[in-house]
Write a protein that binds this DNA or RNA. Sequence first.
DNA 1: GTAGCTGCAAAAAATTTGCAATTGT
DNA 2: ACAATTGCAAATTTTTTGCAGCTAC
Lengths: 157, 157
Amino acid sequence: MDKSDYLNNVLTNNGYKSTIQRNLVYEILAENKDKHLSTEEVYDLIKDKNPNMGIATIYRTLQLFEEIGLVYKHNFDDGCSRYEIMAEDSNEIHQHHHLLCKICGDIIEVKEDLMNSLEEIIEKQYNFEILNHVVKFTGICSQCRNKENENGYRKET
Amino acid sequence: MDKSDYLNNVLTNNGYKSTIQRNLVYEILAENKDKHLSTEEVYDLIKDKNPNMGIATIYRTLQLFEEIGLVYKHNFDDGCSRYEIMAEDSNEIHQHHHLLCKICGDIIEVKEDLMNSLEEIIEKQYNFEILNHVVKFTGICSQCRNKENENGYRKET
DNA sequence: GTAGCTGCAAAAAATTTGCAATTGT
DNA sequence: ACAATTGCAAATTTTTTGCAGCTAC
């Protein structure tokens, strides 16, 4: 099955139409699998392919994509929402583990999914159907720790 | 040690002044330990005690409190930041586990902290100093699951 | 053909900022 | 005394909305 077929199936199955704009947004996200694009960034990237698209459409599209599970919406506290494409074969692959450095703002991805046992307990104990989860650790990254040790203690603005 | 002494110590130790406004914000947060107040909500609650306080001060104060670790800043994707007071004796108590229901929007708190082993691994493997973490599970709560079973399948606006 | 979608521009909502007056140490 | 803090109002930023025209089915 082709990438755009997948998108169009998901749209149709959820009662939405397949449009050039939605395909374009999906394309951009697919081309940036590894990134966390903001609405504005998607907008800028799309300009090359279709300069007429309004940013309101991007907002509406990304919102829709999140609703039907095509993308994951991140919040890194940088003043805007960021989106990441969800793997097509996703079911267990909804792992979004990040390390956010308070000092340099770096976002480090964590690979392992050690959350499965925790999920099981929650599903049973709270009778809560888990669709997705986010795990975020805030702290100080390796690089900044090293710098701290060089410079003595921190006090940044 | 008295509550306000604690606040004033933390402020002083971080090079900030103790002010009536900061004490008031802290007081409001302490009175609402169990809640997740937005800036606007803190502002409204403070009006009774000091009607002259501007909302910009609340924004600045909550930001400051987060920076020096007095509060935890939540994001529940409802369009604003929400704050929760951090326990004074916190060190291991930085557990913020929530279940967010996609349907009714309910926020359920999870008590257990099963994250400790995961933290240890991350600290070692990434040499990342963890200051805080947030674990959020999105899904469907018990109540909504039951309603779904009654009504057949969902399709909400 | 018609409901759904888009683009535009205006509106709304949340947060930030500049600056003069005030306050804490 | 003097730097930090506040209050106010204006500015900025992000996101939403209304609506006329366009498009997919």
